[in-house]
Design a protein around this nucleic acid. Structure first.
Lengths: 213, 213
DNA sequence: CAGAGGCTATCGATCGATCGATCGAACGTC
DNA sequence: GACGTTCGATCGATCGATCGATAGCCTCTG
């Protein structure tokens, strides 16, 4: 189905902000990509910065909702952490442009616009922190610096958006499972190789991102 | 000692490109930071893009030289990989601005200017690839997808530049050693916990980067 | 049903500001 | 007086954003 003008503006912004950066993307670039005049653009957005902030909000809310749904009910920290890793990797592989905007352009927002975005990211990272901390407390994770390790794993998983190509040798399932395994190992997981509920992750990603995975 | 004008221009560019991005940094921003007029700037550089390319060349050459020196003579793949990780982490913790420019702004270069930069990065990554591949071949690393794992570990280590602060709880030595341990574990290292030659890494970083580590 | 009025969507033209870059001229030092 | 440095002034181009106007469509009214 053809996209509405509003959707085309959004898609154009995600694509161009991801590839050329916020400051590298001009209003006229956006207009051309969205097949609109630069004046018409402003019928669908506030300022260019508003557009960026809105993209970040929806992207982060989507990731946060997905992560909460996937880990609802608590349970085994190992399983939860592997689920978070798989979900994060799938999201970054399925929507690399969107996630690259979120990961790389936060600093261009004014402090007032940045604050709620950072709050969303912090809420998301707390899900990781609690899974890791509970795993360490339970003795199933053995790692020296849990907070630093969390940051290391997050960066590792976010990096997927920088290089993954669906035309590569790895299918999404293998990719997600492999990263879950890398994370488990890095955390010194002592339990038997945990099984990741990939089917559930795929369903959530398919629902939230509107793609077939 | 006071810096020369030439050095001030370079330092200003590294700082501003890292924090505000290439397109987000104006010639006048550069001039103000370097305490020069915008016209005087051009006495020390070509175009703005030339300045960016030159920063990337020197930064990548420095990292490549350091990595080659640190792993010269080959030897145990586990030790080599741990050395590469420690060196990479130290470099990113000591010079986060420089490395952020290299990691984030490659795409803004024109194809002609980007090509030699990518070649340098590829040469650097081959050092990682050979250490990992040899370790897998020797059976000391047990990992399913070595190439993907290399990318994952590189992203993990580069991420240090995004968050590390010298005022944090971790000293540089602990940080580098911790990352070496994370990488070893992720690679399914079967040998006894390898000892990283941190002293050697510190010496190389101190020499190449001109800082006391 | 005719048409007046309002609402949504779109555009060409253009605003003042800023962009990267260049010019010619003035310093100081040897 | 030649050379390495520095600058104020300024160039044409492009920036983000706004203007008034137009065309289509839906609703209300008489």
């Amino acid at each position: 189905m053809a996209l509405s003008s509003r959707e085309r503006v959004r898609a154009a912004a995600v694509k161009l902000f991801a590839t050329k950066g916020f400051h590298g993307t001009g209003i006229r670039d956006l207009a051309q990509e969205a097949e609109l005049s630069s004046a018409s653009l402003y019928h669908y957005m506030g300022t260019k910065e508003d557009l960026l902030a809105e993209i970040m909000h929806t992207a982060l809310n989507r990731l946060l909702d997905a992560a909460r749904e996937a880990t609802a009910g608590g349970g085994d920290p190992v399983h939860r952490l592997r689920t978070l890793v798989a979900l994060h990797v799938l999201a970054h592989a399925v929507g690399p442009a969107e996630t690259r905007v979120v990961d790389n352009e936060v600093d261009v927002l004014s402090p007032a616009a940045r604050e709620p975005v950072v709050a969303l990211r912090d809420a998301y990272e707390r899900l990781w922190a609690s899974a890791i901390d509970e795993g360490v407390a339970a003795g199933v994770f053995r790692v020296e610096h849990p907070a630093v390790t969390r940051l290391a794993l997050l960066e590792m998983c976010s990096g997927v958006a920088r290089w993954y190509s669906p035309r590569g040798p790895l299918a999404l399932d293998e990719l997600a499972e492999h990263y879950a395994e890398l994370a488990s190992r890095a955390l010194g997981c002592t339990s038997a190789p945990g099984v990741t509920d990939l089917r559930r992750c795929r369903e959530i990603v398919a629902k939230e991102w509107g793609v077939s995975v």
